[in-house]
Design a protein around this nucleic acid. Structure first.
Lengths: 167, 167
DNA sequence: TATTGTTATACTCTATAACTATA
DNA sequence: TATAGTTATAGAGTATAACAATA
């Protein structure tokens, strides 16, 4: 049996953990996209709702910075959530250029539902693991995420990418 | 201290494992996208190269089916890899509608480099974990991926999604 | 008539730049 | 002149439908 060409966990074949993460991550995102249709949101809208909740009263600029996205991208999202009564934007009287974003009562309810959906998401995805193993996995993933400098609760889908890749 | 609203690994706050998977997965994909620029490929091209390698001589239809993508999407990718001398397509003399795709020698070399890059990718992402923990993580992820029915080596980015989501 | 690969077209998503209104 | 939010525009990516060649 010839030596394997790279150091790998199973010291044999199969995908690397990094590939499994990418694969499972895309899968998880797709499943989540299906689940959130229950509250008639898409993933970016759900993320924005959470961002508003984590720091009520902030401006769109501040939220954009937290999410790592160009502020222009928020405009349509904010407007949509506003029209549907999930968030509220009030002009700051001191500086009338700024909006301050808050969750409405309906928005709060939807956020609670999102929490339940997150639990459902977890159960769907981790059906292969028993409680002890789930705990192990959660610990490992948390540590990896922290070391990689990922902002808790913020999906990299918001993060602006580098220069466009070559054709 | 009030009870938490959903069953969660850490039985307290913080993101679910499913969210961590989505977050880390998107991050991993971004990092991979950066790494493969070394061989002047983008992730879909790298995936196609691997797909061709796993079953040489197949038609574009067959590969499209494996990847779960519309065959039209392969046209541009195949053409690009062909023009750059990484793959070769020969008309099947028995049925001249079909192409049979093969890796060239150059393509083989690039594939080998991709293997090295995959190892590098793993090391970058799992810097937080020691060898034992990496092994644990790999085992857990493999089991979850298998239970979720994910095709080994095929990134869901190829998989055709459902109907477009509501605006 | 059915199938392989191709081309044409449309749509979604997102980034950049130009604009307005306030300061 | 600078900043918050908006609008306009352009580009990447991908899906669907129509097409040509071959069977």
């Amino acid at each position: 049996m010839p030596p394997t060409e790279r150091g790998h966990p199973s010291s044999g074949r199969g995908p690397t953990s990094a590939f499994l993460l990418a694969q499972l991550g895309a899968h998880a995102a797709q499943v989540f996209g299906r689940l959130v249709t229950e509250v008639d949101l898409n993933p970016p809208q759900a993320g924005l709702l959470r961002a508003v909740a984590t720091g009520p009263g902030r401006s769109q600029q501040e939220i954009a910075k937290q999410l790592g996205t160009p502020p222009t991208r928020l405009v349509a999202l904010v407007e949509d959530l506003d029209q549907r009564g999930l968030i509220e934007r009030t002009r700051n009287p001191a500086d009338r250029r700024l909006y301050a974003l808050y969750l409405t009562d309906v928005g709060q309810k939807v956020l609670t539902t999102l929490g339940r959906i997150a639990g459902q998401h977890d159960d769907l995805l981790l059906a292969a693991l028993d409680p002890t193993e789930r705990e192990q996995l959660h610990t490992l993933l948390s540590r990896v995420a922290a070391q990689q400098g990922l902002t808790p609760g913020v999906h990299p889908g918001y993060r602006t990418l580098g220069p466009p890749r070559k054709k």
